[in-house]
Every structure is written in structure tokens, then in C-alpha cells.
Design a protein around this nucleic acid. Structure first.
Lengths: 363, 363
DNA sequence: TTGTAAGCGTTATCAA
DNA sequence: TTGATAACGCTTACAA
């Protein structure tokens, strides 16, 4: 809008609401309403205002909006970077799609090592810069006695569970999946199994190990519970576990891993040492990351619905953000799925029999 | 505001600066200074104030600070999600470490597909919620004619180059690295090479292909320039390229890939089809992602200094943010490094000779 | 349906 | 060294 030169922002200054108001010949309140409650304006007024907004390239100053409205429209996603990348990127994708559709901006903050990181995240929330939090980790940032859980913003846990009353979480059926994963090896004929763990004490780790044990016990496998190698979800720790495995005198034939990275690191190391997979040793992973399709052999694993986990967590958070009162949203459990690929097969003993059987049939 | 009970925040209300001021018996200005310019206060005053801050658990309201101070202390990192994960996570790590040490918060925004994404990013910047931008993509978000480049905030490109005058960038010596990568295969004796590309027109792709061509031409290989398979950096497109490769009548023996994911997808597909790597075909990747150590065989590749690239970009951005005037910071070129692993070896013909030679020596 | 005007919680200017 | 006070740019009662 251009008639009166007074309506143009002076110089290079970014247009503000009063510039738009002047240009459109209305009050600032009307401009504000044109953006927030368009239906409350007379259509022609609205048109004028929107036109002026476009003409001046006006974008509301977010800090001012935030300050006045008492909300930031930002959500913090807390990750434990060290153990994440390949798996969590998709979960975060699901979160972002869902939240940005509702006008929220996502900040992801990692929580490894340094204390400074936790401090910054806690500060962010206490500075009222964050309206809600999604944690992908088993513990929440705490600094100087202040916890995000007490900051007065809604928190939702995804792929993790916190023992905080009333804190909603979105999980998969970890224990059940681990049972299936283990049972798969048992069904193939394996009688000696070993488990490669995630980080000690993590919810996922605890549940998956429990599932492993249950399947093993139910099948009458003995000693399987003592066969457990410590890991932390990473390639490297999978390789470490494999090196320990190679030292064992009477090696198990089936390996149940708490993550795909573990499984792949393990696999690479044992095949590098001359074992064949799955001929000598079967390996199953957990997560369903992309790389599980491109390692050699391809990895039998549990596929988690990663985007969905994120999206569902975001949806629950949105409910809490819009909740009139502290009406608590409920948690949700999604289902993982066994993907059978090339890294699992019958154990060596059965394999020999099979071969003999085939040979006999051929005669 | 003042003496005893009036100095505590009422009810559950979060403490604000006036509460602290009252508790410490000073003005709000003094409280503000205690946090921003502690050296300007008398030590005992400062102590009183800091104590009150601690006692009340006061954290300044960021939106208010932002509004008044005219800066948000937020930096936007723009990524092209689709082609990123394994590689860029580390670059972003480098950026975050550097920026958060200077009190900045990082928001990462992906730029794939939907127009809505670009819109949100542009809005973020125009809403003055972003003080600076680091782009990890070849193009910058634009929406409705408004580009982040014209928003009046400093922009730095990392692992990418934009043709915008005076825009600093942090790169590696892509072309040089691609020459080294290609020369490595030539040195091993390969005479027929093929190139698997990144996204057409991307800076990295263009430079790497140029390097490939130069090495190939310099070695007198002919026809190498026509042997180029289209890809987009992903596992899947590497697999696609491999399927095309398998159809070729007279197959090259050396494969130069524009990314590690391409190389790994390619490798998996050709070995799955019965070719041996490197006995039948040698493959080299580019980037140095973690997976390159765990595929089979391990991948010969160019390692990029990922954290460093990010950190350096962040440092340049910080300079621009603190620059008194538009004193332009310069760009920077870091160096990649050839990592020779198991996926590259002599071509079949030479390999045979070698074997004969060994056999002769054994006699 | 639209306008007036009072803050939102800081920081910065100026004065004491 | 400290304090009073005026913005920063917006939203939202309340009034018209």
C-alpha cells in the first residue's frame, strides 16, 4: 500500500505492526487479528490488511509475540547423541512433521558428556523459551537442582520411560519383541544363545533382556542368562562384544543383540575372524535401521515404527499443550515387527543334518 | 515489592527480575547488570544479588531479553534431510559444540520435499527469531519471494557453496580428493572406471566429478567420462546404480562413488549378484561415515573432517555475529584424506598375473 | 466489527 | 556504582 509515504517503513527498517496498520488504515489490533483470528474481521478489511502485510513483507516479531502471549511455540527434543544417529533421526523426523504442522518449532538438544549441555537445556526451559519437551532418553536434564520435570511444561517420553508419575510415554512392546527375536533363533534350532546388551539399566535394555531371558527359559535353555556381553548400542561395542565372544571355549550359535549397530559391529568382527554368518553363528538385531539392509549378510532384526513413534509422541504433547486443565493424556504402546533376513539360519549341527538330508534326497 | 513477605514470588509464579530486585534490596537494573556485566557491580552487591537469584531460582525470560536486546541468540542450521543422517550429524555436532560454548542455541531445520518446510524456516528468520544461519545445502530456503539471504542475518555455507557474493563457506578440497580417490584406482592398475554421481548440479557432485574426470583423462583413460551413473548419495540409489552396472556388457573394474552410502549400496548389490569385491570390482567411497568400517568389505574412502567442518563454519558465523561492521570473514578450505581399506585392489587381469608371479616365486 | 491502551519482563539510557 | 524510567513490538481486555 503506497499512497501516503508515512505508511512505509523508514529506510531499511523491518516493517512492524504499526507500519502495516498505517498502510492499511486500521489499528494495530486489527492487523494482529487479521493474522490470528481472520474470521473476526470483515472480509474487505481483512483483505486490505493482508495486502498491506504482503506489500511490506511483514512478519511478526516472534519475541514480542512470545512475551505478550506467554508462549514460545517451541518444543525441545532431548536426545542422547552418543547412542542415536541412525535410529533416532527418523523418530525426530516424525516429531518434526507433526509439530511443525501445528506451528511449533523443534529444538533438539543432546545430552552427552559435558555438564554444560544439561545446563543449557534446563536454562532454555526455565527461560520460558520452551513450551513442551519430548525426551528420547531415559533421564531428563537436571542442573543445579532444577529439573525439566519441575519446570511446569508438559513432558512426554518417546522410546524411553521415566519413573515420574503421570508422565506419558510412547513405547514399543520391547519385551515382547525381544521374546520374538529370541524365539526366532530357538525355532531355527539354536540351543545355546548369548545376549549383547545396550546400556545397563536403560529401560529398553532392561525390557529386551527380560524378553530374551523369558524366551530362553521357556525353551528350557540353561545358562543363557549368564551369557551376556556388555554393550552400549554402538558398532564399536558390538565389535568389542564379538572379541569377547571369540574367546569363549564353547561358543553359542545364536546371538541376540539389543540394537542393530551392536549386531552389525558384532557380525563384522566375527566374520572377519573367519566365522560364517549364519552358517556358524546366527545374529539378530533390534531397531530396523537402514544399514541393516546393506551389511553382509543382511540383518534379521526387529523393525520399530520410527516415524510413528515420534509422531505419536508429538500428538500426545500437543494434547497436553492444548489441554484446558491438567487432563492427563495416556501413554501408548506401538508394535515392532520381526524382519527375517540373511543373518539367521539353523545352527551348525542342524545345518549338517540338513545337508545330509539334501544329499540323500539327491541320490 | 519490598521488605519481607512481599519479596517472594506469590504462589507458583515464576520469579521475575523485580522479585529478585526486591529480595536483594536493589533495583532491577542492578539485577540485570549482575548477570550481564558482573564487573560493573561492587563485589558485595553482586554477591547479594546472585544469592537472591539462586534463592529464587530466577532465570531471565528469554523472550523479554530478546525483545529488548534485539537478538535471539539462536542460530538456524539448514539441512537437506534426505541426503544427510550419517554424514551431517557429525558436522552438526561440531557446529553445536562451538556455538553453544558462545551461548547460542541451535535449531536445525530440514528442507526436503514440502514447501511448508521452507516457509517455516524463512518465517523463523524474518520473525527475528534467528541471529544467524548455517546452510549445509546447496540452496537456501526461499518462500514467497523472501530469501534467507536477504533477511539481514549473516549466513555461512558449510560443505556447500552458494553463488552469493561475499557469502563465506567452509569446504573441503572436493576436486582434489576426487582426483586422489580416482588416482588410487588407477595406481592399482584399473583402466576402466565408472563414476556414480551425487545429486546433479550440487557443488560437491560437480567438483567430485570434475576431479574424477581429470584423473581419468590424465591417465589416458578414454570413455571414462561417458561412464557415469546417476545417484543421489543414498544407499538405495547406489543399489540402483549397481543394477545398471550389472547390465553393462563390458564392465569397468573400478567404481568411484560420490558418497559412502552410494558405495555401500553399490557394493552390497554387486556382491549379492555374485561379483567379488575387490577381486572383480574395486569400489571407493567418499565421506568417511561410520558404516564404512562395518560393511563387507570395509570401504576405501575419503575421510572428511566432519566435526571440524562444522566447528569452523560456526566460528566464522560467530565472527560475523560479533563484527562491528560488515567486515567480511573469509572462507576456508579443509582437507580430506584417503583411507585405504579392503574394497579396493588390483583389477582382475593384474590380479591373475600377480597370482602367477607368486606361484612362480613359490617354485 | 474495530479502536484504545495497558501491559508482557527485560535492558539501556540517563541522571544521581 | 546504582536507580528511575523509557522503550522493545506485540496481543488482548475493554470500550465504542
Amino acid at each position: 500500500m503506497t499512497k501516503s509515504s508515512g505508511s512505509r517503513p523508514i529506510g531499511d527498517r523491518r516493517a512492524r505492526i504499526s507500519d502495516v496498520a498505517a498502510a492499511a488504515g486500521v489499528s494495530t489490533a486489527t492487523v494482529s487479528r487479521a493474522l490470528t483470528y481472520p474470521e473476526r474481521l470483515r472480509p474487505d478489511t481483512r483483505e486490505h490488511v493482508l495486502q498491506a502485510i504482503r506489500a511490506l513483507g511483514y512478519t511478526p516479531h516472534e519475541a514480542a509475540r512470545s512475551l505478550r502471549a506467554g508462549e514460545s511455540r517451541m518444543v525441545l527434543v532431548v536426545i542422547a547423541y552418543l547412542y542415536s544417529g541412525a535410529f533416532f533421526s527418523r523418530v525426530i523426523n516424525g516429531i518434526e512433521s507433526e509439530l511443525s504442522a501445528s506451528g511449533y518449532t523443534v529444538i533438539t538438544g543432546s545430552l552427552d558428556g559435558e555438564e554444560g549441555k544439561a545446563r543449557r537445556l534446563v536454562d532454555l526451559v526455565y527461560a520460558r523459551q520452551i513450551d513442551g519437551v519430548i525426551v528420547l532418553t531415559g533421564h531428563v536434564p537436571v542442573f543445579d537442582g532444577r529439573s525439566i520435570l519441575e519446570a511446569g511444561v508438559p513432558v512426554v517420553a518417546v522410546c524411553a520411560k521415566l519413573d515420574h508419575p503421570g508422565l506419558p510415554s510412547v513405547l514399543i512392546n520391547d519385551e515382547e519383541c525381544a521374546k520374538i527375536q529370541t524365539q526366532h533363533l530357538i525355532d531355527l534350532g539354536h540351543r545355546r544363545l548369548i545376549y549383547v546388551s545396550g546400556v545397563e539399566g536403560h529401560y529398553n535394555e532392561v525390557k529386551r533382556y527380560a524378553g530374551y531371558l523369558k524366551s530362553a527359559k521357556a525353551a528350557g535353555l540353561k545358562g543363557s542368562d549368564s551369557l551376556r556381553l556388555a554393550g552400549n548400542y554402538s558398532f564399536e561395542s558390538g565389535a568389542d562384544a564379538a572379541r569377547a565372544f571369540l574367546q569363549l571355549k564353547d561358543r553359542p550359535t545364536g546371538v541376540v543383540c539389543c540394537s542393530d549397530e551392536l549386531a552389525i559391529g558384532f557380525m563384522k568382527t566375527v566374520t572377519g575372524a573367519g566365522l560364517r554368518c549364519p552358517a556358524d553363528v546366527s545374529i539378530v538385531g533390534f531397531d530396523g535401521i537402514e544399514f541393516a539392509d546393506y551389511c553382509e549378510p543382511t540383518l534379521t532384526t526387529i523393525r520399530q515404527p520410527r516415524e510413528l513413534l515420534g509422531a505419536e509422541g508429538a500428538r500426545i504433547l500437543l494434547q497436553e499443550l492444548n489441554a484446558v486443565e491438567s487432563r492427563k493424556s495416556s501413554s501408548r504402546v506401538l508394535r515392532g515387527e520381526l524382519l527375517i533376513r540373511a543373518s539367521s539360519g539353523p545352527p551348525p549341527r542342524l545345518r549338517r543334518k540338513q545337508v545330509l538330508r539334501v544329499a540323500a534326497a539327491a541320490r
